[in-house]
């Protein structure tokens, strides 16, 4: 039963997770989100600096929680892409040094595949093939998962902004601060999702691609033209409804077209309460089994990297070479670099 330590630094969370045989033993996360708030988005240099400061303490915290030592480990896994280049590089350097010093195999893994793999910790093995929808501040992807240890097939993605980015931009124009996801979700609870008919970009397009840039502009336009106080709750609810309506419609269609009866949703936007509710409703109607990890496992973390590493060791996949690069544009088809 391999003991795997996973390191995640692709954006603004320094995550270290420890997994043994599909059981989560520790999930330590240090976030630099507060340092980015005044800039209205993640600043790569600020994130990279924070990763370097947080790495060793976060590793130590994870080891303590798991009740293991570095010498107990059997493998090191690390997100090697996609993500912010400078941020990835800090995690990859740490992972290489641990692997080298402890003489352990090193797995440079795909961030998106890790978002898929994390669900095994909560709901057991994912029946494959499955459709995965990964939605966050950096990604909006629909993937066909035939074997998460081998490759992921991209079906569709955003043609412009990521879903989470749209939440951030709308929150900013409403003066709600950064990050936008949680606050828009909260304010939307008191609003009417049908109050304003915002557009669903590419809803009728036959592809599995989505678009959020027109929606963001439509919200800005509506807010600028509105006379009197802005009904923030209604704007939030109507905007959010447009996003989740589009996302779930495309995901359900992908399941039907591909003849797949399991849908997995991951990424930071999967923490959105309305997305979870609408996806449940539509999956139930369509006879699709929905799997969404708890919010703490949907946002970026080290547990997901350890979970994928654990699967890779289990499947006998060859480890990565020590000259493994940090690849900011790592293709989703590549699970291990």
């Amino acid at each position: 039963m391999p003991l795997v330590l996973g390191i995640e630094t692709s954006c603004d969370e320094t995550g270290v997770g420890i997994v043994r045989d599909r059981v989560l033993l520790a999930d330590a996360v240090a976030s630099s989100v507060d340092e980015h708030a005044r800039f209205g988005g993640v600043v790569p240099e600020v994130a990279s600096r924070a990763h370097l400061e947080a790495m060793i303490p976060t590793v130590q915290r994870a080891l303590q929680t798991a009740g293991v030592t570095l010498n107990d480990l059997d493998a090191i896994a690390v997100t090697s892409g996609p993500g912010l280049a400078g941020a990835l590089l800090v995690g990859v350097a740490a992972a290489k040094a641990y692997a080298l010093a402890l003489d352990l195999p090193l797995y440079g893994v795909n961030h998106l595949a890790a978002h898929v793999a994390v669900d095994v910790l909560e709901h057991g093995p994912l029946p494959e093939p499955a459709i995965a929808m990964l939605v966050s501040g950096g990604h909006s992807s629909l993937l066909l998962v035939e074997d998460v240890t081998k490759t992921l097939l991209p079906l569709g993605q955003t043609v412009d902004d990521a879903a989470g980015e749209a939440f951030d931009k709308v929150a900013r124009l409403l003066g709600l601060g950064f990050p936008g996801g949680p606050v828009v979700d909260r304010r939307a609870r008191d609003g009417d999702p049908r109050a304003i008919p915002f557009p669903r970009g590419m809803l009728t397009d036959p592809s599995y691609d989505v678009s959020f840039s027109g929606l963001k502009t439509a919200v800005a336009r509506w807010v600028e033209k509105h006379a009197g106080p802005i009904p923030v709750a209604d704007v939030c609810a109507s905007f959010q409804e447009a996003v989740v309506d589009l996302l779930t419609a495309k995901a359900i269609r992908a399941c039907r077209d591909q003849g797949v009866d399991h849908l997995l949703i991951g990424g930071g936007v999967a923490a959105n309460s309305r997305l979870r509710a609408l996806a449940e409703e539509r999956c139930a109607k369509a006879g699709i089994v929905l799997r969404v990890p708890r919010p703490g496992l949907c946002t970026d973390n080290g547990a997901m990297v350890a979970a994928l590493g654990d699967r890779l060791v289990d499947a006998g996949v060859a480890p990565s070479p020590l000259d493994l690069p940090a690849d900011s544009a790592m293709p989703v088809e590549l699970v291990v670099a």
Binding site: R49, I56, G86, A93, A94, K96, A97
Partner: peptide, 19 residues
Amino acid sequence: PFTGLRVGIMTAAAFGDAR
């Protein structure tokens, strides 16, 4: 230059931590 510099410092820190 920061990006390369962090590689050396992170490598040294993690190696020292491991050993």
